[in-house]
Design a protein around this nucleic acid. Structure first.
Lengths: 200, 200
DNA sequence: TACTTTTGTTAACACTGTTAACTAAAATAT
DNA sequence: ATATTTTAGTTAACAGTGTTAACAAAAGTA
């Protein structure tokens, strides 16, 4: 009896149409504006049917997060196999990572929990300048006393802040609790590497 | 006439009590659970009074974001002045940054728009393993062929991912639009520095 | 055709941010 | 001291959000 098969197929199609409608909403309005009601509206069904296919809204986002990591892995593999030397591979993988993030912003934000609120907020905060000034001036002095005193201060500042923020936020995503000694070694390793690169 | 003065003082106190109640809520339940209603409840006033002191909820969060950056800057300055050599200063500033982030998680999450949803999500995604496997294996091979083949692979992987994520998310916070050539140079600089540190 | 299961709907609950309309209290002017 | 204006605070609502219980309709089975 093919009825059961057809039902499964239809259910699968329905599920896919929910995801499609949801993704369309995410692409056009950002994933902050995604709501169950809007999905229901788009597929022209009532709200509760969505809960027959997904446990809750989080489950839908989880689906996209999975998709995102799969796509990122694919993009990495694609460029990795083009090179033999591992060091070169590390380089092109990094570029692939970067490109993926900005070509698929919605995915990336979902994957790493980037809440956009800060964007508008952070760029109008004068208090931030105090922090950046401390960092930039210290880097400036370090560079002045280094073998390459003409190095780009702003570039190095940006690198420094990015490394720090990356370490912290990856750490926060990884574990709910506090970092341990091993985590701190990662910090030390990254920072000593950065400072060494400044001092050539 | 001191009446106007008293009024200003009272208004200031009221404002402070709103912030205090809000911060208490953030500390106990996380800033995701902060709501105007809960603040109103805590200060035992009706909801709209809050809008006499803050334009909207975002303005309250902005206040904490400012506070956070100020505190971070202070923490940095404190350790910076303890050392003379700029390179050493860069190091201790980095540690201060790290410590601040985890001693004041709520501030840090607010300051850099870390939406916690990803935390629970990301740690139960098998698709993520595909990505990490690619990165780790490539780093492993790089290390094997390096002058220091006993270097800690996991530590270096973590550093690599953190640098990448930091670069991307700082970039996303900084500009709404797409990265330009200068931004890409920052990426190149950081990655080439990392790879160089692998190859000693 | 009668019965059972699946599918989908309506309507509600418990929240959220925000605001308009109104009342009561305080400060000022007469 | 009384009348008037200004300010402070209230209730009640609007427009959203995720989620679910109770019910109706359609589809499949006996």
């Amino acid at each position: 009896m093919g009825i059961a098969e057809r039902k499964i197929r239809q259910k699968e199609e329905f599920r896919a149409s929910i995801l499609e409608a949801a993704w369309h909403q995410v692409l056009t309005e950002g994933w902050q504006s995604l709501s169950i009601r809007k999905i229901a509206d788009a597929i022209e069904y009532s709200i509760p049917v969505i809960y027959n296919h997904f446990e809750n809204k989080e489950a839908i986002l989880l689906e996209f997060t999975k998709e995102g990591f799969q796509k990122l892995a694919d993009a990495m593999n694609e460029v990795k196999v083009l090179h033999d030397k591992p060091a070169k591979q590390l380089e092109v993988i990094a570029y692939a990572y970067w490109d993926f993030a900005f070509e698929h912003k919605e995915y990336y934000q979902l994957m790493f929990g980037l809440g956009i609120p800060a964007c508008e907020r952070v760029n109008q905060i004068v208090e931030m300048k105090t922090m950046t000034t401390i960092m930039i001036s210290t880097i400036e002095e370090t560079i002045k006393a280094s073998p390459d005193p003409d190095a780009d201060v702003f570039l190095k500042y940006h690198t420094y802040l990015s490394i720090l923020h990356g370490l912290v936020s990856i750490q926060m995503i990884r574990t709910e609790g506090n970092p341990d000694a091993q985590d701190r070694r990662i910090l030390q390793d990254a920072i000593s590497g950065f400072i060494k690169s400044l001092l050539v």
